[in-house]
Nucleic acid binder design. Structure first.
Lengths: 341, 341
DNA sequence: GGCGAAACTCAAAGCGCTTTGGAAAATACT
DNA sequence: AGTATTTTCCAAAGCGCTTTGAGTTTCGCC
C-alpha cells in the first residue's frame, strides 16, 4: 500500500492525501478524517526512504560507539543510555541507528555518515581529551550532542555530562574525613575525558587535605571486574596497603570487593570502597541500605536528556549549543567506614 | 557531492558512473578507474535514501529489543551481542537500526517496520515461549533470525541458540555428582524461552538422580544482582538451606555470592554456585582459575553468527531457514566444591 | 573495405514521497 | 448579479539513485 494506491482508493490526488496525513491546513476537516480513517484501515505507512528523499530528513539519529581496538568491548552503560534515549526517539518518530567504529578511522566514518545522509544528527559517545571529532562535526555541520565533554576543545558544542571532577573530589574528601590517608584510585582509561576529570577531582581532594599523591596507588584501565580485582589484590598485598578505594565503576568495585574478601579483610571495617554508580538497571546499588557508598548519576536519565537536546537542536538548527551538567549524588552505603588504623 | 555533479565533473553520464561504482561489467577498466579515483578524491558517497528507494533495499538490519514494561531494562548481554553483529554489518555495508519496543504493542511494531521499509531484515531478541512474533514475521515476509528459540512454535524459522536445556542439565548434574541434594535454581523470567529450557534441564538432572523437585528452591525473575542477593539470602536463612545454587546469569551469581558472604558462609566450601556465563567483556569470568564454575557461551559470537545468518538469508531469499545450536562449555572455577554435609 | 560482434556509453523512466504553483469550487461582500 | 476571497483540490516537478533499452564506437575477420 503506497500513497498512489491510497489516493486512488479515495478518489483524491496524492497531494491532498499527503497533506491530510501530514496535518497541512489546506485540506478540509472532512476529507482529512476520511483520509486518516482509510490510512488506518488499509494500514498505510509512508515509505521512509521516499519520505526522507523528498524532505531531506532521515528521521533517524545515529549513535556512534567507539570500539577500542585493544579491548574490543562495548561500555556496559551503553544499554541504559540507549534505553533512556530510545523513549524520546520513539515519541518523536525517530529511528535509532547504531554504528560501532574502531577508534582508528573515526574521522572518515563521520564524513561518510554525513555524506550518506542516513541520519539527521548523532550522539557522540566516549569523548576523549581534546577529541577531534568535535571540530570535525562542527565543520561538516552535522548536529550532535556529546555524552560527556572534551577538555581542551575550545569550540562551543552541545553536551550533557556528569560533574565528574566534583563528584570524585567529594567522594575522596568523604573518605579523608573518615580518616583515610592511603586512598587508591582505580580509574577508567585516562585518555577518556571522564576519567581525566575524575582523577583531577581525586587529586584536588587529596591536595586540599595535604595528602601527598602516590602514583603507586593509582591505576587507569578499562573498567572491568577483573581489573578491580587484580589491582586491589596487588595493592592490598603491599606492606603499606591502602585503606580505601575510589572506583570509577560499580563493576570494578565488585572486583575490589572480591579481592578484599579473598585477602581475609572485611569491607568497610578494614577497607572502604566508594564508587561511581551509573545506576545500571541490572546492577542496582540498592536495597534498604545501598551496598556501596557511591556517587550516583543515572546514565539512563542522561540518555533521555541527550536525546531531547539533540532533537531540539535538529528542529531549530540555528540554536546555540546547549549544555547540561548533572550532579552526582553522594549516597552512603555499607562499603565505607572510618579508617582502620 | 551527488552523482550528477560527479558525472558532470567526469564528463560522463550518470549511468556510466553508477555502473562503474557498482562494479557492473559494461564499463571499461579505464573509465572505472577514473571514476573510482574521482569519487575518492571528491569524497563522494551515494545517498543512502536515494539508493534504497531505487533498489528497494534499505541496507540496514533492525534489532528489536522488547522492553518489559514492568522492569524497564535492557538485557546486559545486548551490548556484547551487538558488538559481535556490528562487525558483520560493517563488513557488508549494512547499517544497524535499533528499536526498543514495549512488549505490549509488538505486533503492530513489526508491521510498521515492514511497511516503512527501513530495514531489510531483523534480529528478534528475547523470544518467549510460543512467541507470536515468529508467525507474524513469516506471514509478512520480512527476513529474520531469532536469537534464541520459541518452544511450541511449529513453523520453521531461522534461529541461533545455546543448548540451554543441555547446559543446565549438565551443570546441575555436576553439582549432584559433588554430592549436592538441595540445589536452588535462580532462573530468569520463565515466560522467556531460554529460562523455560533451563528449568527443564535443571529438573531433568534432578529427576535422573531421584532428587525431588522443591518449588521453594526455585525462583524466576529478571536477572539482576539484587535478585540473586535477596533470593539467596532468604533461602540461606531457611532451616534446611540449599547447598548449591544454579544461576542464570553471572550478575545474579554475584548477588548470590554477596549473600553467602554476608551469611558468614564460605563459597565453594559451604555453598556452591554454578552459573550461566555469557562471556560478557566487562565481567570476564577469568583469571588463571575462573571465579565461577560456569556454563559458558559467548553471546558476542552468537551475535556475529546471527548477523551472518541473516545477511545470507537476505541475499538469497528463497533459502530454507537456517538454525544453529551452540553448546555451552562447562568450565570449572572456584565456586563449587563437594556438598558440605 | 565492409560487416557483424563486442565494448562502451547514454537518455530517460521509475522508486514513493513532498511541495510548488495554479485551477476550480465554494463562500463572502458590494 | 458580479466580483473578490477563501477554501479545496490537483498536476507536475523534484529528491538522488538504479536500470532499461538503445545508440555509438571500436575491433576482428574475411
Amino acid at each position: 500500500m503506497n500513497l498512489k494506491q491510497l489516493s486512488e482508493h479515495l478518489n483524491l490526488s496524492q497531494t491532498t492525501v499527503s497533506r491530510a496525513l501530514n496535518g497541512y491546513p489546506e485540506v478540509s476537516e472532512n476529507t482529512r478524517l476520511r483520509v486518516l480513517k482509510a490510512a488506518e484501515d488499509l494500514n498505510y505507512q509512508p515509505n521512509l526512504r521516499a519520505k526522507g528523499l523528498a524532505t531531506g530528513r532521515a528521521l533517524a539519529i545515529g549513535h556512534v560507539i567507539p570500539v577500542s581496538n585493544q579491548h574490543e568491548m562495548v561500555n556496559p552503560v551503553f544499554g541504559d543510555f540507549i534505553a533512556g534515549a530510545g523513549e524520546s526517539y520513539a515519541r518523536e518518530g525517530f529511528d535509532m541507528m547504531l554504528k560501532l567504529v574502531p577508534d582508528t578511522d573515526e574521522t572518515r566514518t563521520y564524513e561518510d555518515i554525513r555524506a550518506r545522509g542516513a541520519v539527521d544528527g548523532i550522539i557522540v559517545h566516549g569523548p576523549k581529551i581534546n577529541d577531534e571529532r568535535i571540530a570535525l562535526l562542527s565543520r561538516i555541520g552535522l548536529p550532535f550532542v556529546v555524552h560527556g565533554r572534551s577538555t581542551d576543545v575550545a569550540l562551543p558544542y552541545s553536551w550533557i555530562d556528569v560533574n565528574n571532577r566534583g563528584a570524585f573530589e567529594r567522594g575522596t574528601q568523604f573518605l579523608v574525613e573518615l580518616g583515610h590517608r592511603r586512598i587508591a584510585l582505580l580509574n577508567g582509561l585516562e585518555h577518556m575525558d571522564f576519567a581525566f576529570r575524575r582523577r583531577r577531582g581525586y587529586e584536588t581532594a587529596l591536595r586540599n587535605h595535604g595528602i601527598s599523591i602516590d602514583e603507586s596507588l593509582m591505576r587507569s584501565e578499562e573498567m572491568t571486574e577483573i581489573y578491580g580485582y587484580r589491582a586491589a589484590k596487588e595493592m592490598l598485598s603491599q606492606s603499606t596497603r591502602p585503606t580505601a578505594f575510589v572506583c570509577s565503576s560499580i563493576i570494578t568495585a565488585i572486583g575490589v570487593r572480591r579481592a578484599i574478601h579473598e585477602a581475609g579483610l572485611v569491607l568497610a571495617r578494614d577497607v572502604s570502597i566508594i564508587t561511581h554508580d551509573d545506576a545500571l538497571s541490572y546492577l542496582e546499588n540498592g536495597g534498604d541500605v545501598p551496598i556501596f557508598t557511591a556517587l550516583r548519576s543515572s546514565v539512563r536519565y542522561a540518555g533521555a536528556e541527550a536525546a531531547d537536546m539533540l532533537l531540539s537542536l535538529i528542529s531549530v538548527p540555528k540554536n546555540a549549543p546547549k549544555t547540561r551538567l548533572l550532579e552526582a549524588e553522594l549516597i552512603i552505603g555499607r562499603s565505607t567506614g572510618p579508617a582502620a588504623n
